[in-house]
Amino acid sequence: MSEARGPESSVEPIAVERGASLWRDALVRLRKNHLAAAGLVALFALLVVSLLTPWIAPYGYEDQDLALGAVPPSGAHWFGTDLLGRDLFTRVLYGGRISLLVGFAATGVSLCVGVLYGACAGYLGGRTDALMMRFVDILYSLPFVIFVIILTVYFGRNIVLLFMAIGAVEWLTMARIVRGQVMSLRQKEFIEATTVMGLPRHRVLLWHLIPNTLGPIIVYATLTVPRVMLMEAFLSYLGLGVQAPMSSWGLLINEGVQTMENRPWMLIFPSLALSITLFSLNFLGDGLRDALDVRASKD
């Protein structure tokens, strides 16, 4: 902010010592947790690979070789091919793009909506809070699959819709978690201090309440990503999600299951990709929960 001092600044130049922010502290602790650090590295690698897929994939995801058919892994096809002779390695790469995109995007949507909604309800309290939370309860009680089917009937199938559908369900839990956090924070003296100082409400919400709920939020978000990915697989399985020739891990696993006995590679490789992601996220989530725990770091 005012770190950049103007030329005629009247403040005598002082060497300001940078504080170790809680975030940097948390990062240090996270690095010491080997499983979580490995998870972080693995996730990062997956993201980079997904971004670079169009350039590193050896084949196009639509390229068929019907004459070849399904062959086990070889030098030309590292993960083997599927029934239509499409390179499985390429399809896992492209599938990863979709799965990760759905996972992170839907989580992002639920994060934004849920955090704001929950924080508002918790901070405003009283009747407003009761009203907002009853609305959440109503949404909770809608059967999810029917909700998605209705959406697809009206809008046709597309990935954006998928995000919306999944995000619309996931933010409910997020809102409840954040509301609980905010309600307990509201009793804290530093929030009372903002009232005494006469700070406007939106400032208190954005600068004082939400930053202090980020710990549980991030942890919950890392747990949401794998759940969303599994949900996408489930929807694709029902034929409501991603459509061929595009692929996603859920779709590939689904195909693999059907020919599991004769062509195990078609199940093993996509499952492996999904498992690595899920493990990484879970380890990272656990690690973050410990790392962000301010109480543990106070002593």
Binding site: M1, S2, G19, S21, L22, K188, E189, F190, E192, A193, M197, G198, L199, P200, R203, W207, H208, P211, N212, V294
Partner: peptide, 21 residues
Amino acid sequence: YASLNPRMTVFDALAEPLRVH
């Protein structure tokens, strides 16, 4: 220990009331 926002530097904590008012 409870009356200061743990995620705000001393500068931010002191600058905030000055700016807002």
